[in-house]
Structures are given as structure tokens and as C-alpha cells.
Amino acid sequence: MATPLLDVRDLHTHFIARNLDNEIRTARALNGVSFSLDGGKILGLVGETGAGKSLTALSVMGLLRPPARVVAGQVLFEGRDLIAMPPEEVNRLRGARMAMVVQSPKSSLDPLSRIGEQLVRVQRAHDPALGQAEATARAVAMLEAVGIPDPQRRARAWPHELSGGMAQRVLIALALVNQPRLLIADEPTTGLDVTVQAQILDLFRELVLANGIGAIIITHDLGVVAHYCDDVAVMFAGTIIEHGPVAAVFGQPAHPYTRALIASTPERLVIGRTRTTGAPPPNLYALPTGCLYRDRCPHAAPDCAEPPPGRAMGAGHIAHCHFAGRLAEHAA
């Protein structure tokens, strides 16, 4: 089998800091994240706040800041381990071969440069030999590709002159101008209006497919995953608890957490049926052994004190639960 574009293996990221009593405290934020991604595919990374979605992206991109650091695992990008690579070498790849679109477009653009200049700068940072004229021409072409009307004139606009949707298009242009192989978008449409969200997601998918890019969309919106992603990985407490093709995971969710998550989407929710409210996520400073979902799981049994194995549910569909495939169909 060919090398996947991105192959994350057993990634562990911890926050290691000293408390007021000068004792070392470790928050185990990522606890063995593994997944792989091929070019031309879109993977949706979902989970609740604090599940480690953004942290996975930052760990992959080498953008962690102390006290967070990767303590174990590999991030194989085109077969080479980014974790073992010297930071300067990762810097050369980031922005060129792999890029990221972050959540708040308005605060992610340099407020003191025109958007055209920012597009030129990101190209020349990775290719100093590139001429100004050529970089400018490519910047304008990129603005046109992301659907910005009158790109020639818009290249001279300041970030504050852009609407939220336009700013998000510029961020996508910035991420794509160097023709990356890997693109990670962290909540790319959160905060945008629904009619604008549709425009941005259509654009995103179109560009990813046209250029054979492997993309990850981090979101808490299962609607985005259902309609724009090929695969989905569900995270809980810093692990991927279920992973597979979108149709399979939405159609036959096998992990109790995935089931609960899908059951609480507005489409499936039945108002008037009493339910238990979501308990707080596990304490990352004192994680239990075995299944991390144990404390919240309605099906928890003595077996769950052991780490759950990955059970294959179908082609490429894996659930990490002792009882995956053995739970009653209706029990969520």
C-alpha cells in the first residue's frame, strides 16, 4: 500500500507545568491519537470542547507552545516524521507543503498589511527567488480562485475592510497559495452566517478535490461533517474513539459516545424525552485506566477497566469499545 499523505501514530501530547507548590503537574491532553489521511480526502475531526481536536492539529503542525509538548508518537507527513525533525525543517514545510486555516479570520490577518502583500509575503518566505511581479500575479489569481470579486483591486484592501466571509476566503487563499499537500482547517465556518458558510465550504471542498490536497476539518458541527467530509474521527478525552467513513459512522455508530453525540443533534433529538445531561469530561490530571468514557457510559461494565481494543466494524470503520457491535441498536 502506498504511503499515506499523513499518518499520525499514537500521538501523546501533555501539558507539563509546575503548580504553586512547585510540584510537577501533567495534564494528559492527547492520549494516543492515531489516524491517517490520503490526498484528495477530507477528514472531519469532531468532539466536545476539550477533547483535543485543536491540540491534535497544533501537534501535527508543530505549533505547540510550552507547557504543551508531544511526549510520544509519530507524525509521518509524506513518510517523514515531523516530530523527530529539527524545528527549522518543519518551519520550511509549514506554510508551503502543509497549511492551516484558523478559526477567527479577522484576528488572524496582519492588520497592518494589505491582503495582497500578505499573500506575496507568504510566497516569498518559502521561495526567496520568486520575483515580486510573479508573486503579485499569483496572489491576485489566488484571490480570484477563492471567489473574491474584483481581485486586482481587492488585493489592495486592508483586513479591516473585509467582511467575515471575505476574511475567511483570504485565509484560505493564504493557506493555498503555496500549493500545500495537507490543509488543516480549525472551525473554518464557525461565526459565519449559514448562507456564507455554504459558500466557504463549497469553495473549500472544490479546491481540495481539484488539487488533490488531504484536508482535515475540525468542527463541532456534525452537519458540516455529514455533508463535506469523507471520513470522520470522533475524539473523546484526547483519544479517537471511533473512526470511519461518514456514511458508516453516522449510519451505524458503534461507540456509545458517538451514539450519544449523534442522538443529541437537532435532527435526532426528541424533545420531551428525559435524558441525563452530559457529565464533565475526565480530569486530564488524573485519568482513569481503561476506557476513558467509562464514567459517563451507560453500558460500563467491569471489562471497561481494561483499555478498549479497536474493533473493526466494517471497511475502515473502527470503534474503540469493548462492546462495539454488541450494543442494542436503539440504546444510545
Binding site: 449559514v194 448562507t195 458558510q197 455554504a198 458541527d221 456534525l222 452537519g223 458540516v224 461533517v225 455529514a226 455533508h227 463535506y228 461518514v246 456514511a247 453516522f250 449510519g251 449523534i262 443533534t265 437537532p266 435532527e267 435526532r268
Partner: peptide
């Protein structure tokens, strides 16, 4: 347009 831009969390829709 608003209705059609809404993404139901169900890939079969």
C-alpha cells in the same frame, strides 16, 4: 435559501 444552506447532521439527507 436559508433552509437549503442548513446542513442537517445526517449524510443521507
Amino acid at each position: 435559501a436559508l433552509m437549503s444552506a442548513h446542513l442537517p447532521a445526517d449524510p443521507t439527507v
